[in-house]
Design a binder for these strands. Structure first.
Length: 493
DNA sequence: AAAAAAC
């Protein structure tokens, strides 16, 4: 057998592949059929046989490629032989554990597992923070074979002794890079130390950074690498446009894009929680049904917002990057970046919410003059320039009701912008020349910021050199490597 | 710079 699954596809070249080819049980296939799936996606075609064979997997798959099913289906299959209908909790120990970085993602994975296992005697449940522990504890005490969790709450349950991980045979680390980004490494290590050494481990990550590789070499055994789409690449189904706008025009621009393009549903990404809440309120004032979702909202508000959005009751879901990864919203026609993300990888994840499952989608990004660095970073990451267009913003977004109100003359497009404080104008504008003669009250020309490629100013370069050079500036990186390296029990391949 | 996650 070839060691590379990617090149081992010559056995079934022409005929459309089906789920029947994997030898999955009839109960699983029935659930797959009822979900409406007939043809496995590339990641599924590659991963399912490898997982069924019991091998460890290092998977790089974009979200929206059917990744969840690619590990859930074979895991359910592998657990089936010892599944039983006994009511005794002792007969239902946790044998598969799936960890995700965010609560919403955990919930979503759990829903998938529930769906695919519904015709089997296997039990599953999900535990994450922000909600009452007691129902989770009850479910755990009744016994589940498959447990989906966020790391913190799982450890909480471990401490409460409501769950025992001593019989886990299969572990999934979903969005592993994100978990490391979020500082979950110590929690992951604590959890991993509770698991049997003899187990199957599946690690999925958008990128194979050195940290991820280190994690994999520590905890995976001779993993099979599976890569369906190059990481850091963006889906060809997604049309990407960047609109040049002034920071102060962004709210109006969002409302305008939603109206002009008649977007029935859209996720609007903001860089801050406050910004997301504010934009949601502004859009509501403009008659667009909008709700914010971010980490400062209660878990029930978050779940309500997501459910309502999935039901189509909300037009604009205004989100922070809590919603950037993994969330699967069927037929989402577009995402809008209100802000360009500071981290270019997050751009790829954000726009991956649209154009899923073969559908087409639009990724519309607003870029103000002081976001050129982010734009340059994104283009560098995805290795191609983005289409940049000016956007004439004619909608003057209604101001946030909670913001100080100095001018009630809404609806007058020619109205001059009175509320510019010097602070709002930080960044490039102050160091530019030739803008003093612009017509008063009209937008300052921004073309000059976009026409020439981004170059850090000499002073910025200098600052960077100064900050990078000293040893202790790189010190925060140390704990990660130290933690990984000092963990003992390195696995031999 | 910001966000996420256990109480």
């Amino acid at each position: 057998m070839s060691d590379s699954v990617a090149t081992n596809t010559s056995t079934a070249p022409a005929a459309a592949p089906t789920f029947d080819q994997f030898g999955l049980s009839a109960d699983i296939l029935k659930a797959v059929r009822e979900s409406g799936y007939t043809t496995p996606t590339p990641i599924q075609a590659q991963a399912i046989p490898v997982v069924l064979a019991g091998r460890d997997v290092m998977g790089a798959a974009q979200t929206g490629t059917g990744k969840t099913a690619s590990f859930s289906l074979p895991i359910i299959q592998r657990l089936l032989p010892s599944a039983n209908t006994s009511a005794s909790p002792a007969r239902h120990p946790v044998r598969a554990l799936m960890l995700t970085p965010t609560r919403e993602l955990a919930d979503q994975v759990a829903a998938n597992v529930q769906t695919y296992s519904k015709h089997t005697p296997l039990r599953s449940t999900v535990v994450f923070g922000g909600v009452d522990m007691n129902p989770q504890s009850d479910a755990l005490r009744r016994g589940v074979e498959i447990l989906i969790a966020t790391p913190g709450r799982l450890l909480d349950h471990v401490q409460q002794k409501t769950v025992n991980l001593g019989q886990v045979q299969m572990l999934v680390l979903d969005e592993a890079d994100r978990m490391l980004d979020m500082g979950f490494l110590p929690d992951l290590q604590r959890i991993l130390n509770l698991l049997p050494k003899e187990r199957q481990t599946l690690l999925f990550s958008a990128t194979f950074s050195p940290e991820i590789k280190k994690l994999a070499s520590t905890y995976l055994r001779n993993p099979q690498t599976i890569e369906v789409a190059r990481s850091n690449s963006t889906n060809a189904n997604v049309r990407q446009i960047v609109y040049e706008v002034h920071e102060s025009d962004k709210s109006g621009a969002v409302a305008q894009l939603i109206r002009e393009r008649e977007l029935k549903q859209v996720i609007v990404f903001c860089n801050s929680k406050i910004g997301a809440s504010r934009l949601a309120r502004v859009l509501e004032k403009d008659g667009i049904v909008a709700t914010a979702i971010h980490g400062d909202r209660s878990q029930s508000e978050r779940m309500q917002a997501l459910d309502a959005f999935k039901r189509g009751e909300i037009e604009a879901l205004v989100a922070t990057d809590v919603a950037a990864r993994g969330l699967d919203i069927a037929e989402l026609p577009a995402v809008i970046n209100f802000d360009l993300p500071f981290n270019a990888e997050d751009y790829v994840h954000r726009i991956g919410r649209t154009g899923r499952a073969g559908a087409s989608g639009d990724a519309l990004s607003l870029c103000s003059a002081n976001e050129r660095k982010q734009l340059a970073d994104i283009e560098k990451l995805i290795k191609r320039p983005l289409q940049v267009e000016p956007l004439e913003v004619t909608i003057r977004a209604r101001r946030d009701a909670s913001a100080p109100r100095r001018d009630e003359r809404f609806g007058r497009p020619e109205r001059t912008e009175h509320r510019h404080s010097p602070r709002d104008e930080s960044g490039p504008r102050r160091r530019t020349t030739g803008t003093h003669d612009r017509p008063r009250g009209r937008q300052q020309p921004i073309d000059e910021f976009f026409l020439k490629p981004y170059e850090p100013s000499p002073s910025a370069m200098k600052r960077q050199e100064e900050t990078v050079e000293p040893e202790r500036k790189s010190a925060p990186k140390q704990p990660l490597a130290a933690l990984l390296g000092g963990l003992g029990m390195p696995r031999k391949s």
